[in-house]
Design a protein around this nucleic acid. Structure first.
Lengths: 191, 191
DNA sequence: TTTCGATGTCAACGCTTGTTGGCCTACAGT
DNA sequence: ACTGTAGGCCAACAAGCGTTGACATCGAAA
């Protein structure tokens, strides 16, 4: 039941090459400047193949932006190390897979990409941190605050490339940002 | 000496209308989807006028993205209220002027806009917070961390519009985010 | 060996884009 | 009243875009 398409088609390699090239281009150029022609050239096939396999540019992006945050089970983490765990995980996930960068860049100008970003954080981050924290702030608000810091870090480090943020080592970033996330998850606001 | 162009030209109103329309479009659509034709239509003039007055689309954007953060003199702020002051100021600045949103959206896909964003934070934010904090972290790093949280807040609230971040009131945001900035400016990292 | 669907190429379509140059019009200086 | 210039519009350009359909080729089933 796990594989609905039992035998591999001969075109699977082509499909994969298209996806790989698409992720690269979307991550580097954003949605509108990443052209189907350029993606096809990278994958060494004709632009019309992209249309055949993915229907449209939107369809290609939807396939290329499929992403799993792979968040660990936070219930198994010592409660006072939640922030550290999250920063470390996101940094690793970001540097190892350019899909998130593609989604981030595209979300600025493409409505569909922004919607995907919202779903990603609602379905994966918000549910992962559900149950943490008490008091006046809802779990959703805590997840939103975490998202604001995580995405801001990614935006300044990988998109705008602010020099001081780029220069900091992952360990520096963990040391500084972990307490922020920790407080957003388990702390209280001032006043 | 304050006004180098003593008498107002008759075209100044048109120039201003173009700039206003450009800021709106760049903020709403980003750099590539905001077309000169659409901007000209909003300003009720011919597209060729945009070229005459601003030379090119890049030139128009450069003029439209001119921005002053208008940061207050932080030396005059009680040292333990730096974070609160900054969050409040940025929130007000953001909601009152769409230029920053235009710059933020465009910075994701346009190299020139990203460069402008870097200059903005280097020249205005980094210099405003210069001198705060001691210890192993340089002032530039502290400014970069502040930028990551401020831009992340703007990105999630005004660009991606993550529901929990949009729903929070400005006062809620101040209460939660102020301690973060306070620590980035005057605190120490964990470990 | 023939057949037929899957795989891939080619050329073109209709459209939009930034940009340009020519032309008309109104108004300020004489 | 005349004239020069600044302000504005119109039409068109070359280029690039996503997308389409017709045609070639390969590989496996018959």
């Amino acid at each position: 039941m796990t594989d609905t398409a039992p035998r591999a088609r001969r075109s699977d390699a082509t499909r994969a090459a298209i996806l790989r090239a698409a992720r690269e281009r979307f991550a580097a150029d954003g949605y509108e400047r990443a052209t189907i022609r350029a993606i096809a050239a990278d994958a060494r096939i004709d632009p019309s193949m992209v249309m055949r396999y993915y229907g449209s540019k939107e369809g290609l992006f939807a396939a290329a932006a499929e992403f799993d945050l792979r968040l660990p089970d936070l219930a198994a983490v010592p409660p006072d190390r939640l922030g550290e765990t999250l920063v470390r995980h996101f940094l690793a996930r970001w540097e190892g897979d350019e899909t998130l960068a593609a989604l981030l860049r595209a979300a600025s100008t493409n409505a569909g990409a922004a919607e995907r970003m919202r779903l990603l954080f609602a379905n994966q981050l918000a549910t992962a941190v559900a149950g943490f924290g008490t008091g006046p702030a809802s779990t959703a608000h805590r997840a939103g605050l975490v998202a604001s810091q995580i995405l801001g870090l990614a935006f300044t480090r990988y998109i705008v490339r602010l020099p001081p943020v780029v220069e900091m080592t992952p360990e520096d970033l963990v040391d500084w940002v972990a307490p922020t996330l920790q407080r957003y998850l388990t702390g209280r606001p001032s006043r």
